[in-house]
């Protein structure tokens, strides 16, 4: 699980990078320096299911240099309504292999670290230590709590993205600048159930926004969702930004 430390100053943009990312280099506030920061960044994504798969795809597209993916288990038929890095021919085989394979095909210039485990209190510190930023796309509150605890200990920002049926939410947790995750969710909610109703388009919507927040944080671009929670009611296509106090 532990990776060798890379001298990030060596990760300069190449001519191929400039070709590949030419159209986004024109984004105001990004440019070559922002693209360089993306190339030098390591992002941990906790689960690459319906939400995390799209986050990973968008960050790979944007040229984030190193993606650490954590996801256990084998591809199930019921994954395929939303987990776009899984393929029908991979049912019964490890999800993490399918995700890594798809991402490497999509962007061979970035590094994919594939971890066939879910986040837990046992491995969270070691996984978070490898990343500059973490994206929480886990379905279990236990995993979210463990990852946020580790990120808080290490002073790393977490992008908290979640969905339920046709609702979604997004915020950036980075205490002490923002509330701690445990101030929002001190423990696993009463009555919470493992299975959640999900449409892939809803997962993908919040995932694209989560990837946008990751890019903004890495490239120091725009205003990240700190101390604010974006609430999305996609049944009514209503968006509300809630101030967190």
């Amino acid at each position: 699980m532990n990776q060798p430390v890379v001298d990030k100053s060596l990760l300069k943009l190449t001519a191929e990078d400039r070709d590949r990312y030419a159209w986004q280099l024109d984004v105001r506030g990004l440019g070559e320096s922002g693209q360089q920061k993306l190339k030098q960044a390591s992002v941990l994504i906790s689960r690459v299911g319906g939400l995390g798969s799209v986050v990973a795809y968008e960050l790979a597209a944007a040229g984030v240099g190193r993606l650490i993916l954590a996801h256990a288990g084998n591809v199930q038929p019921a994954d395929l309504n939303r987990q776009i890095l899984m393929t029908d021919d991979w049912v019964g085989k490890p999800r993490i292999e399918s995700a890594a394979r798809r991402l490497r095909e999509f962007n061979p210039s970035i590094e994919i670290v594939a971890v066939g485990e879910n986040l837990s209190a046992e491995n969270a510190d070691a996984l978070v230590a490898q990343a500059d930023l973490v994206v929480d796309a886990a379905p279990l509150f236990q995993e979210r709590l463990a990852m946020n605890d580790a990120a808080e200990r290490q002073g790393k920002p977490v992008i908290e993205a979640a969905m339920f049926e046709m609702e979604a939410s997004l915020t950036v947790i980075h205490p002490p600048e923002t509330p701690r995750f445990r101030e929002l969710v001190p423990e696993v909610p009463v009555g919470w159930k493992r299975r959640f109703p999900v449409l892939g388009a809803i997962s993908g919507t919040v995932a694209c926004l989560a990837a946008t927040e990751a890019i903004k944080l890495i490239a120091d671009l725009g205003d990240p969702l700190k101390n604010k929670l974006l609430r999305m009611d996609l049944r009514r296509m209503e968006f509300q930004t809630i101030r967190l106090r």
Binding site: G52, A137, P139, R144, M163, F164, S169, L184, I242
Partner: peptide
Amino acid sequence: LLSIISGG
């Protein structure tokens, strides 16, 4: 009363 959600 905003339910904190966790689905991914």
